[in-house]
């Protein structure tokens, strides 16, 4: 099957800034793909290149098998992009905006078109604002219209560049419900976000970008397993020391000890050891692996792998870089 998105050795400079320094990745059809990275990592540049808004210095990009340069018109038909910047055309109402956007894609004025526009409005909770002028909408509502505009032509590949920045909790949930249902219907979704819990719960695969390079690319589950672990966090009563066999496995952080484990059955012996040594606990909690920890570790670089050996595997991030 052709990839939904195929990025090959893509490079782009802006003056002295190397925004993309040889990025390669593949997004499979039907995937919910996360593109993560700190500010300035190159996420938006990559999306812009995908959409033909930025011309590449080298490399190739295909969307559903269509080259974004040589076959740009077909490539753009396959693609719906929600831009990061909050932009709008102040001359038109919400419905006019969507109808015009349909026309740009050559969609005729039919009942089916109007029904689809109504459905999008409904799902994004915009129905009551359909005839309001764009200028009169709040920032979060403008953001929803941007999402709606990206969907008018039912693109097989949907790219959302920080769609939830400045959006309230309720809408975030309705938005993800809607995007998830589109994903279930077979649309490929690519998402950038700085809310890592969001990415963790939505994305099946994740690429992490840093300074224009892919520094990690794997399924969300594998990333969590490799870079983050379950950990038992213990806070000991003042003056209490950790027994030596445990201390050798534990790490101290902010006055608490953290002991990594793989299986829940490993907790029992630890607690037994504590009890046997008469250690008084002030607090105890079980931390689950989370993407934020993965992100921080990956961004700090290869040297800073999870030290306990538990859960971290020996492969370096770049060796799993390009997966088919």
């Amino acid at each position: 099957m052709t990839s939904a998105i195929r990025v090959q050795q893509v490079a782009k400079r802006f003056g002295s800034v190397e925004a993309l320094a040889g990025v390669s990745l593949d997004v499979r059809q039907g995937e919910f793909f996360g593109l993560l990275g700190p500010n300035g990592a190159g996420k938006t540049t990559l999306i812009s290149a995908l959409a033909g808004l930025v011309r590449l210095d080298s490399g190739h990009i295909e969307v559903m098998g269509c080259d974004v340069v040589s076959d740009y018109r077909n490539a753009r038909r396959q693609l719906g992009v929600v831009p990061q910047e909050l932009v709008f055309d102040p001359f038109f109402s919400v419905r006019e905006t969507l109808k015009i956007q349909c026309g740009y894609f050559g969609i005729r004025q039919t009942r089916a078109r109007d029904a689809w526009i109504d459905e999008i409005l409904e799902n994004l909770d915009l129905t009551s604002k359909a005839n309001a002028n764009m200028r009169s909408l709040s920032g979060g509502m403008k953001r929803r219209v941007l999402v709606a505009q990206a969907l008018v032509h039912k693109p097989p590949v949907i790219v959302l560049d920080e769609p939830t920045a400045g959006v309230d909790v309720e809408l975030r949930q309705t938005l993800w419900q809607f995007i998830r249902s589109l994903n279930r219907d077979g649309h490929t979704v690519v998402l950038t976000t700085h809310y890592l819990e969001e990415a963790e719960s939505l994305c099946t695969r994740i690429a992490m970008l840093k300074a224009g390079r892919v520094v990690a690319l794997d399924t969300t589950a594998n990333l969590l397993r490799r870079f983050s672990v379950h950990a038992l966090r213990l806070k000991l009563a003042p003056g209490v020391m950790l027994p030596p066999p445990l201390a050798s496995r534990a790490q101290e952080k902010e006055g608490a000890w953290s002991i990594a484990f793989d299986q829940y059955s490993e907790i029992e012996p630890v607690l037994a050891e504590l009890r046997a040594n008469g250690c008084v606990l002030e607090d105890l909690e079980i931390g689950k692996p989370d993407l934020e920890e993965v992100f921080v570790r990956v961004m700090r670089g290869k040297e800073d792998r999870f030290p306990s050996g538990v859960g971290a595997d020996a492969r370096s991030p770049s060796s799993v870089g390009v997966t088919g």
Binding site: A51, R73, R76, V87, D89, Y104
Partner: peptide, 17 residues
């Protein structure tokens, strides 16, 4: 106007020759 406000992208994203 559409360049300054950024809304130019609405005509740059679609397959308009």
């Amino acid at each position: 106007q559409s360049k300054v406000t950024g809304s130019i992208i609405f005509v740059l994203l679609p397959p308009i020759s």
